[in-house]
Structures are given as structure tokens and as C-alpha cells.
Amino acid sequence: MSIQHFRVALIPFFAAFCLPVFAHPETLVKVKDAEDQLGARVGYIELDLNSGKILESFRPEERFPMMSTFKVLLCGAVLSRVDAGQEQLGRRIHYSQNDLVEYSPVTEKHLTDGMTVRELCSAAITMSDNTAANLLLTTIGGPKELTAFLHNMGDHVTRLDRWEPELNEAIPNDERDTTMPAAMATTLRKLLTGELLTLASRQQLIDWMEADKVAGPLLRSALPAGWFIADKSGASERGSRGIIAALGPDGKPSRIVVIYTTGSQATMDERNRQIAEIGASLIKHW
């Protein structure tokens, strides 16, 4: 067993022997300050990975656009099909120029040879490739089937209704393509630590998230040396920005953090900075 597999395998073990964890309200002060700075709603939740206990939250049951954070859930659904023998990570999918949508930095380079399901999930999570996400959605039956998968997991909140890039419209009070911080955190925890996926698939999912290449300005920018993070960011219209992450010190994840914001007129750089500052406060008061 590799060191990485050993780390994931021990998560349920540590759950039975973990020391108590305590929240620090200073982080919530920073979350509220971020709302003021951005002139927008901010949703935040911090969940103990082992016990599932909510350590701190702000607007945990308000809806926010999922943006590209849905791609982790999508690849979780794909992996569940792999575990059930209904899909193969090595299966090659061919597509055409007509399938390409905006922001497809990986898939646009493989029009001649296609990409495997594994490569598409990697592109969707690590590079947030939109065409990769659409091709993967097709393999499971579309957005409604992803919503059904989540319902079967016990998540009756999170929903995907449209494809890339339309799902990023982020219209106020529109429940399409939205989640709540509490629902997303719970669902992510189930995918990473529960029995829904095999150990190999849980490890694959967290490996893809750990290799995320487009979330550098967010929580990763505040991460001390030696800390672990596996994450997925998202951005969409109407000043929306978000990130879902499993992180912790000593090279292993111990908490789930979900941050969403929407309705801001601030620049992308400012939205990134506010999320990074929330992360810095979280780490300082860990």
C-alpha cells in the first residue's frame, strides 16, 4: 500500500480515536468582514473530516451557485459507476470541434485522439475544463442524473440543472445549479471518507483534487509548508466565487472547508484575496 493510500485508509480509523476539536470565532469575524469588503453574501462552513461535526458556519443553509465545484461531485458519480462495473477509467471518448465550449484548455488539444474517462476527470478537476465536464455528464446521463446520484447519497439540496457554460449564470434567487455550504461539505465528506466509493476510488478523487492547478490564489496561497490540501474552485457570473477543500497539517486532511460568495461587484483578484484571507484566519486559529 502506498503512503497516499495509507493516509486515506486511516481516516475512518482516526475517527474513533480523534482528539476533540474546537472552533475559533475569529474566522467568522473574517467571513463577515469579507461580506462587507465584497458587498456580497458569503457562505462558509468548516467540518471535522473524521466526526462530521460542524466546527463553524455562516449562512450554511443558504443557496449559492455551485460553479465548477460541481466537477468533484461529477467525478464522484463517474467513479461510483466504475466501482459498479458500469464504466472504465481507461475508456477512450472521441469528440468533435462542435463539442468544445468556452474554457477547454485540455480537451481542445485532443480533438484527433480523444481522451480517456480518467483523463477527462483529471482535466475537469485539475484544470476546470468545461468540455471535459460536459463529456463526463453525458456518460452518466446528464445533469438530472447527477442530481439523482446526489439524492441517493442523501443530499436533497444540491442540484445540477444545466450544462457548461450555462450553469454559471448565477441569477439571484434561481435555485438551478446551486447548493448550500452545509450540504456540499457533508456530500464531499461522504465521497472522501464514506463507503459509497471503494478505497481506490476515494484515493483517485482526492488525488485529482490535490493536483488542482487553478486554485492557487485561494486557500493554497495561505497554506503553510507541510500542510495538505485537495480542493476545487469555481467562478461564475455576478461576482460569484467558491472553493471546496479537504485540508490539514502534517500532510493529511482533517477538515472540510466550503466557501461560496455571490453578488459582488468586486474584481476577481479581490474575491480571491478575501477567500485567501479567510483561509489565513482559519489556519492561524486552527
Rank of each mutant, 00 (worst) to 15 (best):
A215S: 11
Y95I: 11
L100K: 02
S57T: 09
A132S: 10
S96I: 06
P65L: 03
N168R: 03
V21I: 02
P217V: 06
S2E: 07
P25V: 11
M153N: 09
P65G: 02
D212R: 01
R118T: 12
T262Q: 08
I54M: 06
E237L: 14
D99E: 12
A124T: 13
K32G: 05
P172D: 15
I243R: 00
G251S: 09
A235I: 01
S240Q: 06
M184V: 04
G194E: 08
V82M: 03
E237V: 14
S254F: 06
A211C: 09
G43S: 08
A124R: 00
Q204I: 14
R91M: 02
R159E: 02
I229M: 04
G76D: 00
L199S: 13
A200S: 14
E26K: 06
H5G: 08
N50S: 14
F149G: 01
R241V: 04
S254H: 09
G85K: 12
D33G: 12
D269G: 10
M268D: 07
A235E: 03
T126A: 09
T158G: 15
I244Q: 00
A84R: 11
L19G: 15
R176P: 02
S233A: 11
A222F: 05
A245S: 05
G154H: 04
L136V: 04
P25R: 07
I93M: 06
R91H: 09
M67R: 15
W163L: 08
R202K: 12
T186D: 14
E175I: 13
S57Q: 13
I243V: 10
D207E: 13
V78L: 05
A280R: 06
F14W: 07
P249A: 03
T112Q: 01
V101R: 07
G239A: 02
E102A: 14
A124V: 04
F22S: 12
F13H: 07
I243M: 04
I283N: 00
D250E: 12
K53I: 14
K213R: 10
D174R: 02
R162Q: 06
L167R: 02
L192W: 05
P60S: 13
P249G: 01
P165A: 04
L160V: 10
R220G: 01
L188W: 01
F13C: 12
T198A: 11
D250G: 14
K252H: 10
G239E: 01
I206R: 12
S68G: 00
S236G: 15
R63C: 04
K190D: 11
A77L: 09
N98G: 14
I283V: 15
K213A: 13
